[in-house]
Deep mutational scan, measured.
Amino acid sequence: KELVLALYDYQEKSPREVTMKKGDILTLLNSTNKDWWKVEVNGRQGAVPAAYVKKL
């Protein structure tokens, strides 16, 4: 499985998103959308802005 690093804090704004903190390591589930990537963090799945994460 592919991992990404959170470059910034992000507070979810809808139920389809997830909150992450700078430095979090997230499991990347889907990166086909260039703006929003689906990730899993702390057992929750949701979208985060692609510009806020970097593939490891």
Rank of each mutant, 00 (worst) to 15 (best):
K34T: 11
D9P: 06
K1I: 13
L28S: 01
L26K: 00
T32Q: 12
L7S: 02
E12N: 08
K55T: 09
A51R: 14
E17C: 08
T27P: 12
L26E: 00
Y8Q: 13
E12K: 14
A51M: 12
G23K: 02
K22A: 13
I25F: 06
N33M: 08
K54W: 09
Q45C: 13
L28F: 03
L28W: 01
L3K: 11
L28R: 00
N33P: 06
N30P: 03
A50L: 02
I25N: 02
V48F: 01
A47V: 15
W36R: 03
K13C: 12
V48I: 10
T27H: 10
D24Q: 13
A6M: 03
K13D: 06
E2L: 12
K55C: 11
K1C: 15
M20A: 02
S14Y: 07
W37K: 01
K38V: 15
Y8M: 12
E40I: 09
W36F: 07
L3H: 10
L5M: 14
T19M: 04
Q45P: 07
A6F: 03
V39K: 00
N30Y: 07
D35I: 14
V18K: 01
P15Q: 10
R44S: 06
K34M: 10
V48Y: 01
E2V: 14
R16H: 15
G43A: 04
D35F: 15
K55P: 11
W37C: 06
A47M: 15
E17F: 06
V41K: 14
S31K: 10
P15M: 10
W36E: 04
L56S: 03
L7G: 01
W37G: 01
K22D: 02
R16N: 15
V41P: 00
E40P: 00
D9G: 06
P49N: 02
S31D: 15
K38T: 15
T27Y: 12
R16D: 14
D9V: 03
A47P: 03
K21S: 09
A50C: 07
A51K: 13
K34Y: 08
K13Q: 14
K34F: 08
M20K: 00
E17W: 03
A6Q: 00
W36V: 05
N30F: 07
D24C: 07
L3C: 13
T27E: 10
L29W: 06
D35Y: 15
G46T: 04
T27F: 13
G46S: 03
G23V: 00
S14W: 06
L26P: 00
P49F: 05
S14K: 07
E12A: 15
W36L: 04
S14I: 04
V4C: 14
K1S: 12
Q45S: 12
K21R: 12
W36G: 02
Q45W: 08
Y10K: 00
L3E: 07
Q11K: 14
L5D: 01
L26C: 11
E2Y: 12
K22M: 08
K38G: 08
N42A: 11
L5T: 07
V53K: 00
E2P: 11
N42T: 04
V4S: 03
N33G: 12
V53M: 06
S31N: 09
P49D: 03
D35Q: 11
Q11A: 13
V4A: 13
W36T: 03
D35T: 13
D9M: 03
T19L: 03
T27L: 14
N33W: 06
K22T: 07
E17H: 08
I25K: 05
